[in-house]
Amino acid sequence: MTSTTYSDRALVEVKNLHVSYEQDHYQKASLRDLFIKTVKSPVQSFLAKRSSQIVLDDICFSLKKGDRLGIIGRNGAGKTTLCRCLAHMLTPQHGEINVPEKTRAIFSHANCVDPFLTGRENALLLGNYLYPWLKFKELEEVIEEACHFSGLGEALETPIYTYSLGMQTRLFLSVVTSVPCDLLILDEVYDGADEHFKALAKERITQLIERSGAVILVSHNSELFKKVCNKVILIEDHKLIYEGSDIDHALALYRSFHGRKGP
């Protein structure tokens, strides 16, 4: 399935998305707690009504090829959960999700695969997870190029646990920005690395965004939204409040909810 197939219709479609988590876990975080609760009041622990916490409620939106969508919302509003649903990491309780085959999602948590492997080996494993559709030969070429771009030199042959956080971010950003895809989801991955590399990476990310089918961007940087996005959605209290192309308006709406200056 190539990206051109999507040019005439919606590339991403999300309808009536509903996601919730079970809340009981906070009371039973270990087998010991479970044992104590069950022995203390066996009937109650079996009959207790399971409460759930709604994270996303009735979310609908669609993207065409070339769209750059920004997601605005305060912490815990459900932005990352929405991105995880699009990446098939989470299964929604209700709703319909259509995303292209070559979807790549990157979240701020990732840095390396195995700290005891060298930088180059980590880069290859990372590439294998990010671009599973590439043939092994192609993958090796991509990783070679990314390693070169990272500018880590001989450090690439030493285990990752000897790296500083900045070096890890350098390698990680180099790998994740090396291949364009149909849908690119970036969840707060702009931070880390030194100023010099940040400038280099920014250029590379901008190029990647231009070459990719569609981009979904989660950030707290309003300047970035204005620069990159042509469409925004605002999530407030797990519901979609605004969908449209007026970024300033969405930011104003967001501020009116929170009385703050930035998203």
């Binding site: 990446a87 098939h88 990491m89 999602a105 990157i106 979240f107 701020s108 948590h109 990732a110 840095n111 390396c112 695969v113 990372l126 997870y129 990010l130």
Partner: peptide, 9 residues
């Protein structure tokens, strides 16, 4: 967890 939450692995 950093890997599982960071990438669709």
């Amino acid at each position: 967890s950093h890997l599982l939450k960071g990438l669709p692995v």
